[in-house]
Amino acid sequence: MDEKNVVVERMKQPAMDECNIEIVERKGIGHPDTLADGISEAISRALCSEYRKQFDDILHHNTDKVTIVGGSAKPEFSGGEVLEPIFILLAGRGTSKVGDRSIPVNEIAKAAAKEYLEEVMRFLNVENQVEINSRIGRGSMELREVFDRSSDLPSANDTSVGVAYAPLSETERLTLRTERILNSKKVKEKLPAVGEDVKVMAWRQGEKVDLTVAMASISSLIDDLDHYLSLKEEVADLILDYAAEITDKTVDVHVNTADDLDKGIIYQTVTGTSAEQGDDGMTGRGNRVNGLITPGRPMSPEAAAGKNPKNHVGKIYNLLAQKIANDVAELDGVREVFVRALSQIGRSINKPYLLSVRVLPESGGKMNIIGSDAKTVVNNWLSNIQDITEEVVAGKLSMY
């Protein structure tokens, strides 16, 4: 790595916790956009596994173009039915032929999508309530091209930028944890009628945090309106209990504010996702790699989920930036850090065109020492950048 391409400088903006206004969003695992992300990533991992099995290498693919078209459903107390299935289109690119060997890319993709949905959605009958069509574009390459490659690191396939920051603010941690708690095994066992489609929007002003939670309920597990209203109260109380473990600020919780009891409108679903009732989803429209949507923070425009983990810097550099940010945030004297990793198409992935580290030091923090230590962190990750690829393939890193 050329040292001149690593720039460490002091950040002059205030820490997020010192800002008067903060807005944070988290789209839960059952939200249509997050489902699209999850499917994209599941397909990529499945293809990585097959390519390595056959060729001991990760071949070219990008499956970051999943679209979910909402269906139609009729939820009702103690029952309900899906009238029109959710339609999912799998798109992108994959290597389907190497020499005279064929790889059934679309079949692998459909199987991976189905398996993912069955894993995350308890009440979605994938066989009967989902229609999956795979139109992943097919490419081919010669065997010699696969096996005659040198051991050099792959080159960046795009000119792109990865963005990350650390640590999470108190409000960000609260937002992330709220959704994860509601979709945890513990809460599903206690309150099984809580669906997977949970969206959390947090707004902090000064010392007050306002949480608006959209929570799909499972209609077959709701006896009547009183039962539904009591579930909302239990969920709000549970959120407040967990919030007290994170913050001393005043927290207000609002659950399913679109309900209109006079019109008989409540947030019920048959399957646990709003995709059953016409809400659509698409890869890249939801959470960034840290699991959040943060309009007051720097965010990457890239859809990381589904991009290949070998040389697609739209994925690798966002994860790299997050790894670096997390480690630099742990250094003595660092309060916040903001990392930008810029690639240039054709350059080795361990040689970014620019790697910018902006640090907000704590009072008394010495930038000369922080800068030296931060460069050590950067060079360590660049020297081991393929560890990120391995963690992605193993499913150890989340994109959403």
Rank of each mutant, 00 (worst) to 15 (best):
M11P: 02
A15Y: 11
N20F: 10
D33F: 05
L35C: 05
A36S: 11
S40M: 07
S40W: 01
S44V: 02
D56V: 02
I58V: 15
L59G: 00
N62E: 15
K65T: 06
S72F: 11
A73N: 02
A73E: 03
F87K: 01
I88M: 10
I88N: 05
A91G: 14
G92Y: 03
S96R: 04
S96H: 09
K97F: 13
R101N: 03
I103R: 01
I103K: 00
P104H: 11
N106Y: 05
A109G: 01
K110A: 07
A112L: 00
K114P: 01
E115Y: 00
E118Y: 06
E119V: 05
E119A: 13
V120W: 06
Q129I: 04
N133S: 12
N133M: 13
R138M: 15
L143I: 08
R144Y: 15
V146S: 07
S150C: 09
S150V: 08
D152A: 07
P154C: 06
P154G: 02
S160M: 12
A166C: 11
P167A: 02
E170F: 11
L176C: 07
L176Q: 14
L176D: 04
R177L: 05
R177P: 06
P192F: 04
G195M: 06
G195C: 08
E196A: 12
K199I: 03
W203N: 11
K208A: 12
D210V: 15
A216N: 09
S219Q: 11
S220I: 05
D224A: 09
L229H: 13
L229D: 09
K232Q: 12
D237W: 10
D241F: 03
D252T: 02
D262A: 15
D262N: 14
V270L: 09
V270F: 03
T271Q: 06
G272P: 00
G272V: 09
E276R: 00
G281E: 00
G286N: 03
V289P: 09
V289Q: 09
G291A: 08
M299W: 03
G306N: 11
V313E: 02
L320N: 06
A321L: 07
A325V: 04
V328H: 02
L331E: 04
L331F: 06
V334S: 01
V337A: 10
F338L: 10
R340C: 08
S343A: 13
S343I: 02
I345P: 07
S348V: 08
N350K: 03
L354Q: 13
V357S: 04
G365A: 05
G365Q: 03
N368M: 12
I370S: 04
S372P: 03
K375L: 13
T376R: 02
T376S: 09
V377L: 14
V377T: 07
W381R: 12
N384R: 10
I388L: 13
T389N: 06
M399S: 13
Y400A: 07
Y400E: 04
